[in-house]
């Protein structure tokens, strides 16, 4: 049995959102997808800020669907923080507790505890306008946690921050998740973010779920071309460009950059082996050094290719070979 069951349906003039998924309590679930795919709408529907056309939101056999926003006990961290400019930091954090008529002393004690948790000890008396973006986001997180929600929704919480801070806060969120054990639904368009912290990832495309799974599942066994290209890099090459192929392949084939191996002298390691295939006459356009490996931008005919290589090729025209099990064919 799953603890959390969510089914959402909402019609808009431009598109329709229709999704259904289950989750376990304590999981960190990421919803990932390009902008406009309905990620933020999903959160608005779960909180109830946006009314559902159809659907159900269940947490441990309790149906929240018809409850008003403020009784759902689903908290949310908004993309632009939504800190209250007229309140001090501690009052911002204590706000959900004030709503619940918690005594002032207890409220502030909790605010202090949460400030410690998010790594901003001593910020109690600060004014919102004196905070940096990263601090705002952590205060917003602390405030959301203060309400002890059944589920915590995070709407692209790091998108407004710089890369280094993003990486740091991402780990912080993961740590806080692990420490509190709270169920989180995390919306992002950043695949790396999703991969690094999620127990489970939902790939969303045009209001529909493309795939649900762990990071590895989605990366290694994408169920659709969309999931495959959205989660990580990849190449799509017409079937005729491959030298030897089993007959069961029909459409264009997908492979990851790191699954291709560059050969410069057509000295195939064991060319006769059936589980390999070869693509010849690949023209190298650019080689980028990435520390542990090189990224090679190349062209086969009119198709751009991205290949990861452990060494720097010396020739301009090369071949690659790929294990057959790393080739993926997506029909439609």
């Amino acid at each position: 049995m799953s603890d959390i069951y969510i089914k959402l349906k909402k019609h808009f003039s431009e598109f329709e959102l229709d999704m259904e998924f289950v989750a376990q309590e304590g999981q960190l679930i990421s919803i990932i997808g390009p902008s406009g795919c309905g990620k933020s709408t999903t959160l608005a529907l779960i909180t109830g800020l946006l009314p559902l056309d159809e659907g159900q939101i269940m947490i441990r056999d309790i149906d929240l669907t018809t409850l008003p926003v403020n009784e759902r006990e689903i908290a949310m961290v908004f993309q632009d923080y939504t800190l209250y400019p007229h309140l001090k930091v501690k009052d911002n954090i204590a706000y959900p507790l004030k709503i619940r008529k918690v005594k002032k002393i207890t409220r502030y004690q909790e605010a202090t505890r949460l400030l410690d948790l998010v790594g901003l000890s001593g910020f109690e008396e600060r004014k919102v306008e004196s905070l940096s973006g990263g601090e705002c986001q952590r205060i917003a997180l602390a405030r959301a946690l203060a309400s002890k929600p059944k589920i915590l929704l995070l709407d692209e919480p790091l998108s407004a921050l710089d890369a280094k801070l993003r990486g740091y806060l991402r780990d912080e969120i993961k740590r806080i998740h692990d420490e509190t054990g709270i169920t989180m639904i995390y919306v992002t368009h950043d695949q790396e973010e999703a991969l690094s912290i999620s127990d489970k990832i939902i790939v969303l495309n045009k209001g529909r779920i493309e795939m649900i799974g762990t990071g590895e599942e989605i990366y290694n066994h994408p169920s659709s071309l969309f999931s495959a290209t959205f989660m990580g890099e990849g190449n799509l090459l017409d079937i005729n460009e491959f030298t030897t192929l089993p007959t069961n392949f029909k459409g264009p084939l997908f492979f990851r950059p790191e699954d291709a191996t560059i050969v410069e002298n057509e000295e195939l390691p064991i060319p006769e082996l059936l589980d390999y295939t070869l693509v010849k006459d690949i023209e190298i356009k650019r080689v980028e050094f990435r520390g542990t490996h090189f990224i090679i931008k190349a062209k086969k005919g009119n198709t751009n290719l991205l290949i990861s290589s452990t060494y720097k090729p010396s020739k301009k025209v090369v071949s690659i070979f790929i294990q057959l099990r790393n080739l993926r064919e997506f029909l439609n």
Binding site: T47, G48, L49, P68, V69, N70, E71, E73, I74, A75, M76, F78, D80, T82, Y84, P85, H86, L87, Y95, P96, K98, I99, R100, R143, A144, A146, S147, L153
Partner: peptide
């Protein structure tokens, strides 16, 4: 209006939100 939305999300009613979040602003 997101500030009000976030207040609802934290469990505040319309009236609580009005007095705590909106009125002051």
């Amino acid at each position: 209006p997101k500030l009000e939305s976030s207040s609802y999300v934290f469990g505040a009613t319309r009236i609580q939100t009005f007095f705590n979040v909106t009125l002051r602003r």
